[in-house]
Amino acid sequence: MHVDTARELKAALSRRLSQAPPGAVVASDAPGSWSGVALGLAPVGPQQVHLAVRVLAEADAAQVLDALDDAARAEVDVRVIGPVRPLRSPTPGQLQQRTRPLVPGLSVAHPDVTAGTLGGFVRRTGTDGLLVLSNNHVLAASDAATEGDPVLQPGPADGGTAADRIGTLTAFERFVATGNLVDAAVAALDDGVDADPAGYPGGPLLDRVVPADEVDPDETVEKVGRTTGHTTGRITAVEVDGVGVQYDEGTVFTFDDQIEVEGLSGSFSEGGDSGSVIWRSSDRAPVGLLFAGSSTGGSAGGGVTFANPLATVLQVLGLTFVAGA
Rank of each mutant, 00 (worst) to 15 (best):
V3L: 09
T5N: 03
R16Q: 15
A20S: 12
P21Q: 13
S28E: 08
G32R: 04
A38G: 01
L41G: 11
P43C: 05
P43R: 08
V49F: 13
A52Y: 00
Q63T: 14
A67C: 07
A67H: 10
D77K: 09
I81D: 12
I81P: 02
P83G: 06
R85I: 11
R88I: 05
P90N: 10
Q96W: 06
R98I: 03
P101E: 08
P101C: 09
V108H: 01
H110A: 04
T114E: 13
A115T: 05
G116S: 07
H137L: 01
V138A: 00
D143T: 02
T146S: 13
G148N: 12
Q153S: 09
P154H: 03
L169Y: 09
L169I: 08
F172E: 02
F172G: 01
F175E: 03
L181T: 08
V186C: 06
A187K: 02
G192M: 03
G199A: 15
Y200Q: 09
R208E: 15
R208L: 14
P211S: 03
A212S: 13
D218W: 12
T220N: 14
T227N: 11
T227Y: 08
H230C: 05
T236I: 11
E239Q: 13
D256N: 14
D257C: 00
I259F: 08
S265F: 07
S276M: 04
V277P: 09
R280G: 12
S282R: 15
F291D: 03
V304A: 06
Q315H: 14
L319M: 02
T320P: 00
